[in-house]
Design a binder for these strands. Structure first.
Lengths: 116, 116
DNA sequence: ATATAATATCATCACATACTGATACGATGA
DNA sequence: TCATCGTATCAGTATGTGATGATATTATAT
């Protein structure tokens, strides 16, 4: 039985997707596909500010998309489940075909520059 | 090569996920997993207002997640690609395991009532 | 031509949420 | 102890975005 059968689960699922729906969080998740990273490594990899990364990591951690392990001053993060990466890859493949549509989607005024 | 290698593609991908990150759109996509539906059938299936459904359909259509075909006064909608459904299912399965975390995710103050 | 049905569009409002900068906290080393 | 590093938290701000209600548009029927 699919969770989606339950209306409340739709909100939960929307919440899950919201974890993926922000460029900053996506950058973080993408970086973590390569393996375990500390916060400062993620900051370096993504170019985001430290507080911003920390906030998003908190969000991703609370939602169960990443797990953290503290060691001394460092906190190591990794994807919580291989399906997180799978979801990213499936979306990637889907994008290969519908990307043009997504490019041109201007509803809700999301600005995505394509040519520079 | 993964699109994610490109920073701009991360924004595109975030945009794709944003299509899935709203309960109303998710309801619509879920309804469409059963097959082709007209707008008014979607309105009935989801319980959303007509203008709201139409707005979201515009968003989903522009993003390439659904396709529309007009016949007379009616417009028939369906999922554009079977991977749209696959993505929903994979997320569903992932939720089965990390749902508890998502439940408890209170960052950015999303209210999800679990017990009623 | 007129009425009505199905759908789309638009302005507006209320709220959600991402970013920054400052600061707090915990751990390590001198 | 003091300084510093790595990380987390918080207030404030600006912007994004979902819902509604009114209206426009197109098609069909009488």
């Amino acid at each position: 039985m699919l969770l989606l059968a339950n209306p409340k689960s739709i909100e939960i699922q929307a919440k899950l997707f919201r974890g993926f729906s922000d460029p900053s969080r996506l950058s973080i998740l993408d970086a973590l596909r390569g393996g375990v990273l500390t916060v400062s490594e993620i900051v370096e990899a993504t170019g985001l500010s430290q507080s911003n990364v920390s906030n998003h990591l908190g969000c991703l951690r609370d939602c169960g998309l990443v797990v953290a392990e503290k060691q001394g001053r460092f906190v190591y993060y990794e994807l919580s489940d291989k399906r997180v990466g799978q979801l990213l890859m499936l979306a990637d493949q889907l994008l290969a075909d519908v990307a043009k549509g997504v490019y041109e989607c201007t509803r809700y005024n999301v600005k995505v520059s394509i040519n520079g």
